[in-house]
Design a protein around this nucleic acid. Structure first.
Lengths: 150, 150
DNA sequence: CTGTAATGTAACATCATAAGTTACATGAGT
DNA sequence: ACTCATGTAACTTATGATGTTACATTACAG
């Protein structure tokens, strides 16, 4: 299965946007994320439609955050991406009348649903502000270590 | 992302084997699971190596359960399949030095790890015997409804 | 001992989906 | 006008599960 890295990529982009004054272009974000400007636009499109970011064309254009960091959770971003599949395993419905299949799918389905619910709840508990804070902490620690070395 | 249905498919096969006297051939299992005999062998290979099932070649050969239903959990089966990926999203390591990436990957990584742990624990709590019991309950209910109709 | 039924496995084809790429239209500022 | 940017369609590539073909191997029946 090819994994989906969009959520991670978008978060990376958003934090860089938060840490930068003025708009960032798709090309700049693509460099930070080791990807392609078109992929950036395609992925950010959902966030724009959800009102999480704003994009401007032409000279001086690019992407900017449209909402306060504290008001956006990772779940908002996940939903803006179209709520892509989180669980890699599925439960096929080859024989809807087969009682064995029903028993198996019920057991697996509820376990998968619970794990997915846990994950979505977890995403809902984390705001972009919290992530930015964590980033700042790491930056401070990083600078301190750098000073120790010199 | 193409989803992975092996766990569901294998459970389906094992319950049918439990409900059937004598070995079942790959061809018979493939019919029940709407798939291909070679796919059945390929998928069951891990279970054989793990000692969960036994296979015999030649006349009268096929697949049989090698252990008591109560002694096998869904997690044993999941592990025998090679513990395939459960979470569909990944966390790329494009820039290991980027502190933004570290903060994002830490938040997502721990959420994903927790969801995966929950799911694996859930699988470990369910035995094949429990599934077979659930199947029997459904079968009884099914027969009763059928009688009511007639 | 030959024929048949089964697994074991390699090799290749197919399919689905995220990601990468090219091309071009559109809009905004200089 | 020119240039810089997004918006988007269309196509290609990469990856992994699944499907298929082919053939070797093994076990039993006659």
């Amino acid at each position: 299965m090819s994994q989906d890295n969009r959520l991670s990529a978008v978060l990376h982009a958003l934090l860089h946007m938060a840490d930068h004054a003025g708009p960032l272009t798709s090309a700049e974000l693509a460099l930070m994320m080791s990807t392609n400007p078109v992929v950036v636009r395609r992925t950010m499109a959902g966030l724009r439609e959800a009102g999480l970011v704003h994009s401007a064309r032409g000279h001086g254009g690019g992407w900017e955050l449209a909402r306060d960091l504290a008001s956006v959770t990772l779940r908002d971003i996940y939903d803006a991406l179209g709520s892509p599949r989180l669980i890699a395993m599925g439960i096929p419905l080859a024989h809807p009348g087969c009682l064995v299949e029903q028993a198996v799918n019920h057991a697996l389905g509820s376990a998968f649903a619970d794990a997915e619910a846990l994950l979505v709840d977890r995403l809902g508990e984390v705001t972009l502000a919290r992530l930015a804070e964590d980033f700042s902490t790491r930056a401070v620690r990083h600078r301190r270590h750098h000073h120790e070395d010199t």
